[in-house]
């Protein structure tokens, strides 16, 4: 192999490496830029035009109404399984006084944001992704753009904000139902003898000051990340994409976002 051929080979190798390196953080950078864009638009009163408000209320209804039953069922099962088991085994091990602390740190801080995020991602996020993907591939967003309607403003902003609020709402609902069901299961079995208020008080009392910021922050940020991720994944499709390629990619991105947000908030608030 002569010298020019070697240079060509090295050049091609570097090009492949560069393409790979640039492709990896591409969607992450898209999320950062999109997130900042949503924030800037959301705080500007003139952005909340009637079309944006219509889409916001429609999305909020769909998200909370659609995710309500799933959240209640999952919270019910989690309460019966996880909370009652935790209470039972902690009592068995003579650590009954730690029950509140463990439930607040495990259930409220770690499990609830992830489960609610997954419910929202699966129940509504995928639908959002399919909607946006179809609108993009069919060229409908270009037509809207031609009429002076910014698709980012009328779809991404209201959907991301609606997802943020619904994650918080469903997250609080999930936490309350899971704890209540756990208490009921233990009370029926005779494992706990205190009243439900004392049980809830014990859980709340064992929360750290940072949890009062961290838990809502996780709900808000998980919802925001899922909403933004699904909308941007839908906008980011190409003509070759279809549902079989769009949905798995969006789902894995959404899962990554939920887990990354949880770890990030834990690290920032020093919970790990």
């Amino acid at each position: 192999m002569n010298l020019p051929e070697r240079f060509t080979l090295i050049h091609r190798g570097l090009a492949v490496l560069g393409r790979f390196t640039r492709a990896q953080p591409r969607f992450f950078l898209l999320m950062v830029g999109g997130g900042w864009g949503v924030f800037c638009e959301a705080v500007r009163p003139s952005s909340w035009r009637r079309t944006v408000r219509i889409e916001f209320w429609r999305s909020l209804r769909q998200l909370i109404g659609g995710g309500f039953v799933s959240t209640v069922v999952v919270a019910f099962i989690t309460g019966l399984g996880l909370v009652s088991q935790a209470v039972y085994w902690l009592g068995f091990a003579g650590l009954a006084q730690k029950t509140g602390g463990i439930l607040s740190s495990v259930l409220l801080r770690e499990i609830a944001p992830v489960l609610v995020g997954v419910i929202l991602l699966g129940r509504s996020g995928m639908l959002m992704l399919a909607d946006m993907g179809n609108l993009t591939t069919q060229g409908r967003l270009n037509t809207l753009n031609g009429m002076g309607i910014d698709p980012f403003l009328v779809f991404v902003v209201p959907r991301s904000i609606a997802m943020t609020l619904s994650a918080f709402t469903l997250g609080i609902l999930f936490s309350v139902i899971a704890l209540t069901m756990g208490y009921v299961a233990c009370w029926v079995e005779g494992i706990v003898t205190v009243s439900v208020w004392s049980f809830i008080f014990e859980v709340i009392n064992s929360m750290q000051p940072g949890d009062y910021i961290g838990i809502p922050l996780k709900f808000f940020m998980s919802g925001f990340a899922v909403g933004l991720c699904c909308c941007l994944s839908g906008l980011d499709v190409t003509a070759e994409d279809n549902l079989t390629t769009m949905l798995p990619r969006g789902f894995s991105r959404g899962m990554m976002s939920i887990l990354a947000i949880n770890v990030l908030v834990d690290i920032i608030l020093g919970s790990v």
Partner: peptide, 26 residues
């Protein structure tokens, strides 16, 4: 600008009344 295009750009998430009113509402 009023436009008529080959791809009419109807959004199937909304009824036709909202699709018609959408640009003016915005």
């Amino acid at each position: 600008i009023g436009r008529i295009s080959e791809d009419s750009g109807w959004i199937d998430l909304y009824g036709m009344h909202l699709n018609i009113l959408w640009p003016r509402l915005h």
